[in-house]
Every structure is written in C-alpha cells, then in structure tokens.
C-alpha cells in the first residue's frame, strides 16, 4: 500500500501554486494536510499524476478578525490551530465546539480547515458547520477570483464547485448574530469515527421566545450537506416550545434528509437518529441563545 508515482511540487507562493495547477489541469491535485488525500492514494482510490503541496505557503495559514465581528480563516490553518484559537472561540462558537470532534488528535495536527472543505465529504463536520454559518469561500485561479457561498460550494459526494485550476484560499465567516444559540451533535459507533448521522444547528431568537431564524444542516445524511429547509419553515416565526421542536425534528428526519443504508446503519435508523438529534440540538441551541437575550 503506497501511493502511485506522481510529480511533486512545493511552491512557496499562491501564484506559483496556481501556475502549477493551470499547467497540469485535471492531472494535478493540491495537497493540503493530506489526511484524506494520502490515504486515498495509499489505497489507489486517487491517482493524481501531479501533487502541488501547499504546506510551504505560509500566507495561507492565518485566522484574522473582520470588521463587524466576523472572521477569516486561511485555507491552510490546521485544525489544531483553529481548535486552540481564542478568536474562533469568541466569534465562531459553533466552529470552536466542532473542532475537537473532528477525527483524531493525530489527524487534527495535520489536517487543514480548507482541505476538509475542498474534500467535500458529506460526513465532515466543517462542511456542515460552514453551511450552517453561511460561510463564504474565496476561490482563486490565475484568471479570476470569486467568492462562493458555502451552500453553493458543495455540489455532491466529494464534489465541490472548485475547477481544477482553482484553489480555495480563505473561508470567511460572517458575524455570529446576537440572540443566537448553536449546537453540533453526532452519533458514531466509536467516538471520533465517521458519524452515522449528525447535525449542525443555529437558532436565532426574535422578540420574546420567537424563532427568528433556524439553520439545521445534516452530516452523513445524503450526497452533500443536507439543509433542513422544511424544518426551518416549521420553526421560523413560531414561539419556541417542545412541541415545535418535535414537529421540526419530524419534518427534518422524514423530508429534509436523504440518508442511505450501508453496513453501519439502515436509512430508517439514520432517520430515527436524525429525529432524536434534531430535538436535542435545538434544545441545546435554544438554551445557549437565552443568555444572549
């Protein structure tokens, strides 16, 4: 088990990396933390003939505050760095809570924020959290720069809107709204394993106990991050109550997600778990929204 042969480049600037990607097109793959790509190459599930290693580009590893309360995370910021960052804890509590749940200590030492997103694994915590938070992704190529909203970035199973010559360089998270609670819950057979089902939730309260905005995004629940659109319709504009959460959970687990059956769990069991987790996540998010009232 070893990766197939490939040409290796280690650019030190984004421009140089983009030039390599433009030159080699579909044959090339950017190498970020490599915590998904290298095992895929070990098993020959991926066989890029050129790797463009981004680990020597210091300009891509940062966490910066933005005006108005949001923050920007460089694509090569490692999970362990984001996990420990005080600014992330303050400005993006959902991300802060998510980080220790990602994979294992070893993988978080090396894996990167942008790499996880570009890999577009529907069971990845950050994929769903970035959609729940309405993140924006800065994508550059030699020709152009564009910003892609998180909910338009993930196109399907391991498929993102990135073109072969493009590079994800920055993730921008908007200011975390006031009177908002959050939750990220997963169920896995073993702690830190790929989850059977999970949900990233944010809940913004309006006047009194009214739900102003709700975001539920499900992991391992379909071909991409599955947004609980119909559940949000159930919640928004209504007064918070246990019955309301139950109804939203029912709608989300039956109508919003599309889980499949595999050796680990049946689709039916996943829907059941989604129902339970939705309720728990909404309750937790609600509790956390209250101190901000």
């Amino acid at each position: 088990m070893k990766p197939p042969p490939f040409e290796y480049y280690a650019p030190t600037t984004v421009e140089e990396a983009l030039a390599r990607l433009a030159e080699h097109g579909y044959d090339a793959k950017p190498l970020a933390g490599g915590q998904s790509l290298i095992p895929m190459m070990n098993f020959r599930l991926a066989q890029p003939s050129v790797l463009v290693d981004l680990n020597n580009i210091p300009d891509l590893s940062y966490i910066r505050p933005n005006e108005g309360g949001g923050l920007s995370i460089g694509a090569m910021a490692r999970h362990s760095m984001v996990e420990k960052d005080a600014l992330v804890a303050e400005r993006a509590p959902l991300v802060h809570e998510t980080m220790p749940k990602i994979a294992t200590t070893q993988i978080r030492s090396r894996g990167t924020f942008g790499g996880s997103l570009a890999h577009a694994d529907p069971s990845a915590e950050l994929v769903c959290a970035s959609v729940a938070l309405d993140g924006k992704f800065k994508v550059v190529s030699q020709q152009r720069e564009r910003w892609i909203p998180a909910n338009e970035f993930f196109l399907g199973l391991f498929t993102s809107a990135l073109e072969p010559e493009e590079l994800l360089v920055e993730i921008q998270l908007p200011p975390f709204p006031k009177r908002t609670g959050w939750s990220l819950m997963e169920i896995a057979r073993r702690p830190h394993d790929f989850c059977l089902i999970g949900v990233a939730a944010t809940l913004t309260l309006g006047k009194k106990d009214q739900c102003k905005k709700a975001r539920l995004v499900y992991l391992s629940a379909g071909d991409g991050p599955m947004v609980g659109q119909q559940a949000a319709k159930v919640l928004e504009g209504q007064s918070i109550s246990p019955e309301l959460f139950e109804e939203a959970a029912e709608v989300a687990s039956s109508a919003d997600i599309d889980p499949s059956s595999d050796i680990h769990a049946t689709a039916e069991f996943r829907r059941h778990l989604a129902n339970v987790l939705t309720r728990r996540a909404l309750e937790e998010a609600y509790k956390r929204a209250i101190p901000n009232i």
Partner: peptide, 8 residues
C-alpha cells in the same frame, strides 16, 4: 503527533 502513513 501525526500518522506517518498519511504524510509524505
């Protein structure tokens, strides 16, 4: 700590 099988 890193997994040395997943780093070149």
């Amino acid at each position: 700590p890193v997994n040395s099988c997943m780093i070149l």
